[in-house]
Structures are given as C-alpha cells and as structure tokens.
C-alpha cells in the first residue's frame, strides 16, 4: 500500500514538521501508526533528534477525569510558555477494528490554547500500540514538543505498559468508586510515580487518599516497589483546582530523575521494552511464516512441531 504522503518523503515531512508545519507532524504520526517501511524510516530519522522531552504518562479508570485533568495540565503548561503535546489512546473495537476517540471533547480548553492533541486507537492491541506510541512520542519530541503527555485508559496490560514506559507515570483515581483498589489490582501501584485523587471536592476524597497510603505501605513492606514513594496530589480538574500542585509534582519528579541516574535507567528500560516489542513483532511474523512454510507433519506432537519451527527460525536446528 502506498501511504498518502502528498508526494513527500518521510525525511521531507520531518523537515517541514520541525519547521512547525502541523499537517506534516500529523502525517508523520499517521505513518508511524501504520507501521512498516515508512515508520521504520521515521524511527531512524527521529532517533537522534529525540530525547529532550519529558514524557509523562497519565492513566486512570474510565470516568476518572483524566482527560479533563490532562487538558487543564497542558493548558497551564502553555500559559507558562511551554509547548506540550498529547497522545490520547483509546481502545479499538476488537470485533470491527473501528474506534470512537472522544478525548478531544474533554480537552477543548487545551486545543483552544494551542496544545497539539493526537488521538490514537489501540488497533488490535499488542505489538502495534507498543511500537506506535514510542514512535509517536519520538516524532513529537523531535518536533520540539516538551513535555509529551501520553493519556490512556488504565485497564489493559498494554496500556499499563505504555504508561509505565514514561519518565513520569501519573495514576488518577476518584473518591468513592473503589478506584484505589482497582488500581492495585491492575498493577498500577507498582508503576505509579504520582497519584492524583481527582474530584477531590467529592465526599470520600480523604478515604481514597487513605486507601492509597495504606496500599503503598503494604507494597513497601513487601518490597515489591523499590523506588521513591509516590506523592499523592488532590485535584478538582473541572475547576482547575490542584492542577498547579500536580504540575509542580511532575516537575519535581523530573528534577529528581535528571539529578540522579533515574532518567537514564528509565530510558534504557523504555528502549529495552521497545526493542522487546519489535522483537516480539518480528518473531511473530517469522513464526507465522514458518508455520505456513513447514507446518505440522503427521506423527509429530505439537511440542515437537514448535521446537522444529523455532530451530528453523533461529537457524540453530532443533531447540529441544
């Protein structure tokens, strides 16, 4: 398939994008999302240009107000003279592959303030998203956006992984809905650098905070979380309350990372995760290919077939 690039090569698009042409930025993101050769070319071209932006991941259950919070946060960043961009991830329908991406509605303040917002569908989960999001972040980073905020629904493992791969991972919970417990179940407690209790004007906000504290205590005791204890910030995003505190906490976390080895460690981990995703993708394709070319033969068990094909792929003979 020939992607519509208006006749421009990825390199030409990148040059235009770095000059601030929004449509070129958007088109690069499209190509990254589609994967394949053009995406690889863009990954190559942006690899050395990126690395400046602070990457912030924001996640929370549906209805936690994370879009409104992201909007308020990035609007505040614009007011402070910074140039944020948002990648808002929503799930694709597993049945049809289609998606309804509704984050811009709640981000209207940010879009009006000039924040670059890109909605992205998970497109069948797995490898696609795990590759597309870092690729998109690199494009935005290379185009001078800083910070780059990834906003995603924290329900699936893939989405959690995406946020975990950010420099600063923010988990949003709300009072009264057992969000803190859900966050624990989803494994978000381990990845969070910052917690936000949003809708803090509601009854139960202090309970939510206490639940979080309690669970963090338990996590620390179990030693499952060998990092800095996450800060808890209270916000009421719809009124803009607490958003300055959140921004200060995000900046403080960044400062800690930059001041020590944290940033390098995280970025190394992020690159490793991306390489792993690429590897999974490549091996998956090779496995499919091998299966077509040399599938099961009579008399062979499934384990034997798998080992034979693995050997064929890796060029090492039978791995059994």
């Amino acid at each position: 398939m020939q992607p519509a690039t208006e006749g421009r090569t990825p390199a030409e698009l990148l040059a235009a994008a770095r000059d601030g042409e929004r449509r070129a930025i958007a088109r690069l993101l499209t190509l990254v999302e589609r994967g394949g050769g053009a995406a690889d070319a863009i990954a190559g071209a942006t690899h050395r240009l990126a690395g400046t932006a602070h990457v912030v991941g924001i996640t929370g259950a549906p209805g936690s107000g994370k879009s409104t919070l992201t909007s308020a946060l990035t609007t505040l960043l614009v007011a402070g003279g910074r140039r944020p961009a948002v990648v808002a991830v929503d799930p694709s329908s597993p049945l049809t592959g289609g998606a309804i991406l509704g984050d811009r509605v709640r981000m209207e303040a940010a879009t009006v303030a000039g924040v670059f917002v890109r909605s992205m569908a998970t497109r069948g989960h797995g490898g696609g998203l795990a590759l597309a999001v870092p690729g998109a972040v690199r494009v935005l980073d290379a185009c001078g956006f800083d910070p780059v905020v990834i906003e995603t629904v924290g329900v699936g493992q893939v989405e959690v992984d995406v946020v975990a791969a950010a420099d600063t991972a923010v988990v949003v919970v709300t009072p009264g809905w057992g969000d803190a417990v859900q966050a624990n179940k989803a494994g978000l407690l381990e990845v969070a650098d910052l917690f936000v209790v949003n809708k803090a004007d509601r009854p139960g906000a202090s309970d939510a905070r206490r639940d979080l504290d309690l669970m963090l205590d338990l996590t620390e005791v179990s030693g499952a979380c060998p990092k800095r204890r996450p800060v808890i910030v209270e916000t009421t995003a719809t009124k803009g309350e607490g958003v300055e505190d959140l921004l200060a906490a995000i900046d403080a976390h960044h400062a800690v990372l930059v001041g020590g080895t944290g940033l390098e460690v995280r970025r190394a981990r992020r690159l490793a995760a991306e390489v792993r995703a690429r590897l999974d993708h490549l091996l998956g394709e090779a496995a499919g290919q091998a299966l077509v070319e040399a599938g099961p033969v009579a008399g062979e068990t499934t384990v034997e077939t798998a080992r034979r094909l693995a050997g064929r792929i890796l060029g090492t003979g039978d791995t059994g």
Partner: peptide, 8 residues
C-alpha cells in the same frame, strides 16, 4: 466505528 473506521 462498526464499519472499522476511527472516529475522532
């Protein structure tokens, strides 16, 4: 969406 499109 049900026809496989992405709707912003």
């Amino acid at each position: 969406r049900d026809a496989g499109m992405e709707v912003v």
